[in-house]
Simulated assay, not measured.
Amino acid sequence: MSDGAPLVAPDLVLPAEVLAEMRSRLPQVAERTVDAIISEVPSYAGALSGPMGAKIRNAVQLALGGFISLAARTREAPRTPTAPAVEGAYQLGRGEARAGRSMEALLAAYRIGARASWREMSAAAVSGGIEAETLGDFAGLVFAYIDELSASSAAGHSDELATSGRVRRRLLEQLGGLLLAGAPKEQAIAAAERVEWPWPETLTAVVVPDSQRRAVLGVVSPATLQPAEDLTGLEDRALLLVPDVAGARRTTLVRALADRDAVVGPARPTLEVRASYDRAARALALGLAPVGDESLLDTEEHLGELVLHADPVALADLRARALAPLADVRADTAEKLRDTLRAWLLHQGRREAVAAALFCHPQTVRYRMGRLRELYGDALDDPRTVLELTLALA
């Protein structure tokens, strides 16, 4: 917990009318602060309703009230956070650990809450005529106070984990291992009940660099599992099993992980999560590249490549058979014919489109397709041959 050290801005004196205005705005500031946390920290999206939500809202109001009391002190009075505010922050940290939320999520809530509350309080200060220099001191006091409370919450979170969290974390790791191993349903459900893990409809495998694991845990559900065992192909990477992000929720997950070098598998029924992990691992092994400018690799954007490379040996055999008519053609000519055939297949035989794709004259396309028809004969009109050539040239 806090050591009660004085905060910055010892010479700051706010007019009584400004302090009164801030007190009058406390409920509004608290509500907007909570709304900002809900909007920007996914872990809290469903947490701020019911009894736990009421506790968190009360903690926000207590913290803001403590700050007003702090700001009202005179130059002679030491500027240290009030005991109730510090104790409230400490207990909040312990409660968040018991709820399974990471310290990263709580600190993110503090950062966003500080930004939102500062926006409201500074507006009150400016409307009260506070000068720029005084406003700067006020800002220093606001953020030093938030740092003090977040440190107290971090201590509470750490203390709770030290006393009760380790056992639960180990049981959750074991549960993740059971699900990946395809354990019988009864065994998996019993393990989930033992650790009070809410059974989701689906799980989605997310692979992230070890360096990003803690940050990612701050933006996904606190019920996310982290299997402890080492898995082949995941050196220097961590596997997370994220609950219930199927459908529209997947878009939110992908957006949150856009710059995290993550690989996201498909959502699968909880007992079938191994299939999600296998697809993510296969995408990594194939070295597939992200779509667009982001670093995230979404396996849903690469289904064609994943299907195509599911059996590399079969693909090699298919390629050899489909392209056998070109085997005796000179290498440079064969390459041009393959490019032409690929474009012809993709553009469904439209000569102008094929020529544009190859940056050549339509007559060149006509000549090459004539050569290919000499080599393939009527097979180019056979749907099965067209399918095999499309796969072979993909």
Rank of each mutant, 00 (worst) to 15 (best):
41 V>L: 05
249 R>E: 15
135 L>N: 04
377 G>P: 06
173 E>D: 05
315 L>E: 02
207 V>D: 01
351 R>S: 11
237 R>A: 07
42 P>V: 09
158 S>R: 06
110 Y>E: 03
5 A>E: 06
12 L>M: 05
190 A>C: 03
3 D>E: 14
100 G>E: 04
198 P>R: 07
126 V>M: 02
291 V>T: 08
88 G>H: 10
162 A>K: 14
255 R>S: 06
339 D>E: 14
202 T>P: 07
282 R>I: 09
385 T>L: 03
147 D>M: 13
108 A>H: 07
215 A>V: 12
250 R>E: 14
98 R>K: 11
7 L>D: 01
353 A>L: 13
198 P>K: 01
175 L>S: 08
391 L>S: 02
60 V>M: 05
55 K>T: 12
316 A>P: 12
90 Y>I: 14
310 A>M: 15
91 Q>G: 04
49 S>G: 05
40 E>W: 10
241 L>W: 05
315 L>F: 07
348 Q>A: 08
305 E>P: 02
5 A>Q: 10
394 A>C: 04
282 R>F: 14
352 E>I: 15
270 T>N: 00
76 E>Y: 15
374 E>P: 09
262 A>Q: 07
147 D>G: 13
156 G>R: 00
234 L>Y: 03
6 P>G: 08
339 D>Y: 05
102 S>H: 05
347 H>N: 06
344 W>S: 05
364 T>E: 04
65 G>M: 10
292 G>C: 04
289 A>I: 14
45 A>S: 13
130 I>T: 05
301 E>P: 07
153 S>F: 08
377 G>K: 11
45 A>K: 09
375 L>V: 02
307 V>F: 09
246 A>N: 13
